[in-house]
Amino acid sequence: MLIIYTVFKDNVSRIGISLGGAFASTITQLFISRIILFKEATYVIAPLFLFSGLISSIILGIFANEFIHKSIWYAQLKGKNV
């Protein structure tokens, strides 16, 4: 997510950043699952896992947009430049 934000700056929406983060997270989880937990069976759950990640990241991106617009805490934090 940080890489996407650093590379694309304002050319990518928060939904895009969220999608990128979800994709990276899902791939990592599937990779670990492939090695440690479910071995070959990982490929069975992979499509469902990727799809649910896609949907939840879009919802999260929309939520992040709303939160940033309305949050006093975020505005204060930005003012402090933390």
């Binding site: 939160f67 949050s71 006093i72």
Partner: peptide, 13 residues
């Protein structure tokens, strides 16, 4: 929800 989370974060801060 957004307002509630915001209040919680302000409290933490």
């Amino acid at each position: 929800l957004i307002e509630a989370i915001d209040q919680l974060l302000i409290g933490i801060e």
